[in-house]
Design a protein around this nucleic acid. Structure first.
Lengths: 167, 167
DNA sequence: TTGAGATTATCAGAAAGCTGACTATCTGTC
DNA sequence: GACAGATAGTCAGCTTTCTGATAATCTCAA
């Protein structure tokens, strides 16, 4: 959890001067992405803390309520979460009564994760919080700029053209 | 009834599984940021692994070589790294002979972190790798779009003036 | 049908990161 | 100068996340 200490305003004042970054870092997109994501995730989890859920829990609930029951592996792939971490997160959600593990009818190795009624309610409440978080986080941008940013980020998600697999 | 498992497994050999997300998540900027940062950081650390350094190590080396010696606290603030994690990272760098902890002449609680000759060399080599990583990562975007993305991300780094701290 | 190899979920142990306490030092007030 | 409170760095212990191994099951070729 990152303290969202404001960066930037450096010079003068006896307060805590946050040192500027060297120009070579200030324009490095991977670094800017990391910092933005770090701040955003920290505030999201902080705002979610009254619900007892993390952003990852909400991601899982959103997937299974909006796309229907799916396996743990599918959840992990979609959300970029390690397979063993999925186990822990689902243990949490099952303990709270928000999801149910049910054997996959066609593959008895796997479980299908089903949302429950309370799970859907919790998801709705949590998404409202995340909507507010997103609104605050994107406050410095105009509506057009937000759409622009989303578009650019989506373009980056696309699978790398330089496939490491066979070409 | 929709077969949700169609997302992950479905067709052909298990090549790159790009599972689809529900629309409500596909347009959520904090989530897109998280995924982009996650992918970028993972590839950066992977590409750096032959050097024995992580992206955070390189961040520290870049700071002290380009901005001059600074304290551990300043490094942590600038890079968004916890103070105790800074200790560990500097232990690594010192063990490799890349930096030296030297008492601050005006504040004997603090250390000034100085880069060494080998440290500067290692930084130069690592930055070349990170440049290549950035190039690959941004490949889907045009030059103009990259500048646009960097600008938007920089705007997000400066949080709105709703500072909870007292001035 | 059978057997080899792949896949799904799980667990134990390792690794990474954070919280809180602690020492040494600084700053400001008397 | 002396004392109270704040600050820089460190360490122990906890939490979170990943690595590697395992059991159960599936797939596919012979």
């Amino acid at each position: 959890m990152v303290r969202a200490t404001a960066a930037g305003s450096g010079s003068g004042q006896g307060s805590a001067p946050v040192p500027d970054l060297p120009p070579s870092m200030r324009d490095r997109v991977p670094f800017l992405l990391f910092r933005a994501s770090q701040i955003s995730l920290a505030t999201a989890n902080q705002m979610l803390s009254p619900t007892g859920l993390s952003a990852r829990h909400v991601g899982i609930l959103t997937m299974v309520t909006e796309l229907g029951p799916m396996t743990q592996k599918a959840l992990g792939n979609a959300l970029g979460i390690d397979r063993t971490t999925i186990v822990t997160l689902l243990d949490d959600l099952e303990r709270k009564g928000y999801v149910i593990r049910q054997r996959h009818p066609r593959d008895r190795r796997a479980f299908l994760i089903h949302p429950t009624g309370p799970g859907r309610d919790a998801k709705t409440a949590a998404v409202r919080i995340l909507d507010e978080q997103q609104r605050r986080f994107l406050a410095p941008l105009t509506a057009a700029e937000r759409r622009q940013l989303a578009t650019l980020l989506k373009r980056l998600q696309a699978p790398p053209v330089t496939a490491p697999e066979r070409g």
